[in-house]
Amino acid sequence: MTPETKPKAGLYPVGQAEPAPPPKLPATFEPAEPLPAPEPSRRRNPAWRWVVRTGAALVLGLIVLDLGLFLEGLFDRSLALGAAFSLLVGAAVVAILSWIGMEIRQIRKLGAVEAIRIHAAEVLARDGHGGAMGFLAEARRALADRPAVARRFDRLEDMVLETMSDRDAMELFRREILVPLDMEAYSAVRRAAQWTAIGVSASPVAGLDALIALWRSVRMIRQIAEAYGLRPGPIATMSLARRVLTGVAGISVVDVMGDMWAQHLGHRVAGLLSAKLAEGVYAAVRVARLGLLAMGTCRPVPFTSEDEPSLSRLRTEITGSLVRSLNRPEKAEG
């Protein structure tokens, strides 16, 4: 607070004062502390790891070798045939590589969500001015890959002024961007859950219902990720699913999947529904819970208690729709 640390208050000519451009805040964000390293996944037996690695190398080597021999044979027969197939193989390799690259990029982006989340928490904690601008630029890059979302960002940028406090800017961000995305993701969860409920209770074969639930969950996770600006392919979706399941601190996968029966379907309700129906609701609630966890994982700002989607509401919606859909044919008969 010594006078030398601050200029003297007053007017300065524009030229002499070297006015820098207006405070465009750093668009990229460097977290003050390095991100905590992800929890090491369950230790595998190193010997087993070597088995996997050497196995993979063996398969890859065989494929390469086989392809080489195959092409060589073709070249022996005819130059044109060999050249054409080499081209095809080359194209396939490029396609596979670029696909892997895209998946890796998506997985990286998944990691970026974490950084954005820390950034948001920092902006909110600081309670200052101007810090939100950098956050919004970052959020835009992460979220606005669809034109509709980009338009909403345009609107938001029209509203957020540099005179606004960060809290206010973040409130506008929540209202203008997050809430619509939440609704989108939420309806993906609801659709998946309802679908699972009906599919499982209608499935004639045991085992098929599990497949249905799994397939629907994967699709749902992908849709949720897409709502929040991610575009995961199969690999990235799996990585996301793993993140969702391991992200729940203190709860093991088994817990998440296991305690539903007791927790969300009391005996009374279970008694009202036929066993098959109850099974459907059980599966649906499981999918819904997974969906809400996935929303929490993909959302660039943590939920507040105010806008947290509620599982109990979802459950009511699922049960309601299931009962409705099953009642209809009965009534028609009777």
């Binding site: 200029p7 300065y12 524009v14 004062a17 006015p19 005179t163």
Partner: peptide, 19 residues
């Protein structure tokens, strides 16, 4: 609002100011 944000360079550091 009659002013725009500006930066004043003071002892090598930018200081928030108005234009």
């Amino acid at each position: 609002k009659c002013t725009e944000p500006a930066m004043l360079r003071f002892q090598g550091r930018p200081v928030e100011a108005l234009r």
